[in-house]
Simulated scan of single mutants.
Amino acid sequence: MSFIKITEQPSLHEDLEQLSVRSLLEGINEEDQKVALAVRSCIPHIERLVTGIVERMQQGGRVFYIGAGTSGRLGVLDASEIPPTFGMPDTYIIGIIAGGETALRHPVENAEDDTLKGWEELQAFHISDKDTVIGIAASGTTPYVIGALQQARKRGILTAGISSNPDSPLSHAVDIPIEMIVGPEFVTGSSRMKSGTGQKMILNMISTSVMIKLGRVKGNRMVNMQLSNQKLVDRGMRMIMEELQLDEKKAKQLLQKYGSVKKVLDIYNKK
């Protein structure tokens, strides 16, 4: 089967500049509705990946997202949300983007074309076979990502790739290919749209499922969240009030004393 770049196929919507605002919005929404179904078809592969990650993280392993452009930014975003949401140190899920910090806000010329740089950046973390590397590239052809994954896989590190093209070079470079085929973009080739939306959904699924399986959620509550603002403190108090049937004053005292919802619940459950 020859490699087909669906991400570069012409949009199904013509003469966009002549459409009304309402028609543009409805067209974008029409395309977005295809994303969840495309992601759903990937669940067996995502399940295999999550299972592998949990096994490795229970032995001290880490997860590395690696990508360029929009894909890299989404990886960094997901990684950055783990500490405040689940109370895990930022050393467990790490986002790496071609071009470094600058590339989060500005394009860095030729950064994604370097086949060696991605692996060099992974080596700086003393990566081992307990870790997992997830490459993100809508096209499935980004040299920076593929080069890093090839080197990681050679060394027995679990690898996965998230792309929007079937049978891509990225898929051939990894243990677990996750091919989310969302079809042509509303604006031809603009993979920040449906492909980016699907990538975000898949990253949410991976990291959230992993954190739940590692015990960072109780029931359906973020009991390990960082209490970094008043909204989260209030949420924490409500959790304690509901779980332990305490009034607001007592819940607040306990939260201030122990610093996290989980610690409060653990102490009370031992009584």
Rank of each mutant, 00 (worst) to 15 (best):
D78M: 10
S71D: 05
P84V: 07
L49K: 14
R216I: 02
I82H: 03
Q58I: 10
E243S: 13
M201L: 15
K130A: 09
L77R: 04
I4N: 05
V35H: 09
L37E: 14
I96P: 00
S71I: 04
D175H: 12
E30I: 00
F64R: 03
L116Y: 11
I127T: 08
D175Y: 07
I212D: 05
A148V: 08
I212H: 03
A103W: 09
D266K: 01
S195N: 06
N110V: 02
G161L: 03
Y92F: 14
E101I: 12
S207F: 07
V21T: 12
D90P: 10
G27F: 01
R56P: 11
V133T: 10
R40Y: 12
L244F: 06
Q151A: 15
S168A: 09
R22P: 06
F186I: 12
M180P: 00
K218W: 04
K257M: 04
S128E: 10
L104I: 13
K271P: 00
P44S: 06
G219E: 10
S2N: 14
M239T: 08
E243L: 00
K257E: 14
M239G: 02
H106T: 15
V223W: 05
N269R: 01
Q58E: 15
G215V: 11
L24R: 08
A98Q: 03
I6F: 10
S20T: 15
D114R: 10
Q151I: 06
V50H: 08
D129I: 08
M1I: 09
I4C: 08
M201N: 01
K257F: 01
P83H: 09
I267W: 02
D234H: 05
V63G: 03
F64Q: 03
G259I: 03
G135K: 04
Y92Q: 14
T141M: 02
F125W: 15
H106Y: 14
H45Y: 13
P107A: 11
Q123L: 15
E55Q: 15
G161T: 07
L104T: 13
Y92I: 15
Y268N: 01
K257G: 00
G27I: 00
I46S: 09
D32Q: 02
Y144I: 02
P84Q: 08
S171G: 15
M211D: 10
E17Y: 07
E242G: 01
P143Q: 01
G99N: 11
L255E: 03
M201R: 06
H45A: 15
S207D: 11
G95F: 01
E242S: 06
I127W: 04
M180I: 11
I267V: 10
K117E: 10
Q151N: 14
A36V: 10
L203M: 13
L203K: 05
P107Q: 11
V264Q: 00
V108H: 10
R56D: 09
L244A: 13
Q58L: 14
A138P: 00
N204Y: 02
M211C: 13
G196I: 00
S2L: 13
N204Q: 05
M225A: 12
I28V: 12
E30C: 03
G219H: 07
G135P: 11
H126L: 11
I53D: 05
L25M: 14
Q199P: 09
V21I: 15
S209C: 08
V261L: 00
E121R: 15
I96F: 08
F86V: 10
E14C: 06
E185W: 02
K213S: 14
